[in-house]
Write a protein that binds this DNA or RNA. Structure first.
Length: 323
DNA sequence: CGGGTTTGACCGGCGC
DNA sequence: GCGCCGGTCAAACCCG
């Protein structure tokens, strides 16, 4: 199948709909998330947007997001819609892109039934068949969140411990894709890491699922006294990433809702750091990039302003006022 | 020796 | 049905 140039075209977005300023800001999220409208709503939740229901009734919004979605999806039609940022090519070489995808039920049924056969090969075959039968029902995917990050290293430190379980060559790309699983037992979060081949300085990290536990770095923090550590300090509790320091603090004794909020905060922090790094992209003098960066900033501003009490303390004012 | 990585094989989904 | 491709498995290997 012929691969089509993908990307968010600025001209596809009706940015003159001033009467829909609020909607426009959200539509930017949709556009930059490069996801379908429905998936974008998951992203709204991620960003802490409580009430986005009015947006569903904005025809222009729907049109815009669907339009973009079509552009993105056109390279590989019929693909699993939950696979949003699995792009052979990034949206545009310089665009920032944060993707989210959601799916309903989770099927992590991987039970392998014990066999009493003596023949090893036969046993393995049978196991595989059973496994196949078990997972016969349409495989459901965990929610996914993708980040495009400008970074020298492929595997970005995010505070969790990962075990690599596979690596595959990516079609049309000289860079392989690595598959990681969270090492914590009973936590089936996965992550995919690949480098954009049109802009090798950008790493696309896709998280699948939600951690069922605090990050080890956080636990250490709690263990040594849970003090707020200076940024970029690993030993004293916080942890830094290649794209900036990620939140630190006490993860012990959190209620589930608090923990959920913390996780959300962490995602937001990752998002923020990603956008920050893109703000200093060397190629950001292109008009297309500037245009999209403006949108990005609006997106973050809009989303962050809706985050009552979580992010205002970490978002520098110049980021909020920029452009 | 335990935990992580590498890598070829395998499997399921999908398009033709 | 066949081939391609993304995702996963698991044996072999590596390393502290």
């Amino acid at each position: 199948m012929e691969k089509k140039e993908m990307g968010v075209k600025s001209e596809d977005i009706n940015i003159d709909s001033s009467s829909l300023l609020n909607s426009y800001q959200f539509s930017s999220v949709f556009d930059f998330c490069e996801v379908e409208k429905s998936s974008s709503l998951g992203f709204m939740e991620l960003l802490g947007v409580q009430d986005y229901s009015p947006l569903l009734d904005v025809p222009q919004l729907s049109t815009m997001s669907m339009k973009t979605s079509t552009v993105i999806a056109s390279s590989d039609t019929g693909k699993d819609s939950s696979e949003v940022l699995n792009q052979q090519q990034p949206a545009t070489p310089n665009s920032c892109s944060i993707s989210s995808a959601s799916s309903e039920a989770v099927n992590d049924n991987k039970t392998v039934v014990e066999q009493t056969e003596d023949d090893e090969e036969e046993k393995q075959k049978t196991n595989k068949q059973l496994k196949t039968k078990k997972t016969n029902q349409k495989k459901q995917r965990e929610p996914r969140f993708a980040f495009m990050t400008k970074s020298e290293v492929d595997h970005l430190e995010d505070g969790y411990r990962w075990r690599k379980y596979g690596q595959k060559a990516v079609k049309n790309s000289p860079f392989p894709r690595s598959y990681y699983r969270c090492t914590t037992v009973s936590c089936n979060v996965k992550k995919r890491v690949e480098r954009s081949f049109t802009d090798p300085s950008i790493v696309v990290t896709t998280y699948e699922g939600q951690h069922t536990h605090p990050s080890p770095a956080m636990s250490r923090s709690a263990f040594v006294g849970a003090q707020i550590a200076p940024p970029d300090s690993l030993v004293s509790g916080g942890f830094s990433t290649n794209y900036g320091s990620v939140l630190q603090g006490n993860y012990n004794y959190l209620s589930s809702s608090q923990y959920h909020q913390q996780q959300q905060h962490q995602h937001q922090q990752l998002l923020f750091n990603t956008l920050s790094s893109l703000n200093h992209h060397p190629y950001n003098n292109s008009s297309a990039f500037t245009q999209e960066r403006k949108l990005c900033n609006q997106v973050t501003t809009a989303a962050f302003l809706r985050d009552h009490g979580l992010l205002q303390d970490v978002v520098p004012s110049h980021m909020l006022k920029e452009e």
